[in-house]
Amino acid sequence: DFMGTPGTVVTFFPDQRFDVERQEGTDYLSGIQFKIPKDSTEYWSHRFKKFGLEYQHIDNTLQVLDFDKILLEFIE
């Protein structure tokens, strides 16, 4: 939101002019990466579990699909 309330880092607004199914690929949004503090993956994995989100922990990265099926990567 415009106040910068915690938890509102990214907001998407529907636009009827682009009423087309999203496609993945080199010319389209394929994910969003966030840098997270060192040793905070446990905190984030607990949050994902709390909200019923399945995630993968690969090396120093947590990968999760948001409610719009966009890949989010949380990188330590």
Rank of each mutant, 00 (worst) to 15 (best):
Q33C: 09
D27Y: 07
S30E: 04
V20N: 00
H57M: 11
D1F: 06
H57E: 09
F74N: 08
S40D: 06
R22M: 04
F13I: 05
V9D: 08
L72Y: 01
E24M: 07
T5I: 14
L72G: 00
Y28P: 00
F67T: 14
E76R: 02
V64L: 02
T61C: 13
E21T: 11
F12H: 04
R22S: 06
D66T: 05
S45M: 11
E54S: 15
G7C: 11
Y43P: 06
H46E: 15
H57S: 09
Y43S: 13
E76D: 13
I75N: 12
H46R: 13
F12M: 10
P6Y: 11
T5V: 15
R22G: 01
P14Y: 10
I70W: 03
Y55G: 06
G7N: 10
D15S: 08
L65M: 09
L62H: 00
F51N: 10
I58T: 10
S30N: 10
G4H: 07
G52Y: 02
E73T: 10
D39Y: 14
G52K: 00
K69Y: 01
W44R: 02
T8Q: 07
Y43L: 15
W44S: 04
F34K: 05
Q33I: 07
I75M: 11
H46S: 14
H57K: 12
Q63Y: 02
H57V: 13
F67A: 08
L65D: 01
S30V: 10
F2S: 10
Q56M: 13
P14R: 10
L65F: 12
D27N: 11
Q16R: 06
F34A: 03
K38V: 01
Q56C: 08
T26Y: 00
T11D: 01
R47F: 06
E54Y: 03
F34D: 02
D27A: 14
S30F: 06
E24K: 03
E54M: 12
R22W: 04
F2Y: 08
P14T: 15
T61Y: 03
G4D: 07
K35V: 14
V9T: 07
L29S: 09
D19W: 06
D19F: 07
V64F: 01
G7A: 10
F51C: 04
E76L: 03
F12T: 07
D1P: 07
R47P: 00
F34P: 02
N60Q: 06
E54W: 00
G4K: 08
D1K: 02
D15A: 05
D15M: 12
K50E: 15
T26L: 09
G7T: 10
K49E: 14
N60V: 03
L72S: 01
K50R: 14
F12V: 11
F2P: 00
F51T: 08
F48D: 05
G4M: 11
E24S: 02
D59Q: 14
T61F: 03
L65Q: 03
Q23F: 03
H46A: 15
V10D: 04
F67D: 02
V9K: 09
Y55W: 11
L72C: 09
G7E: 08
E21Y: 09
K49R: 12
R47K: 15
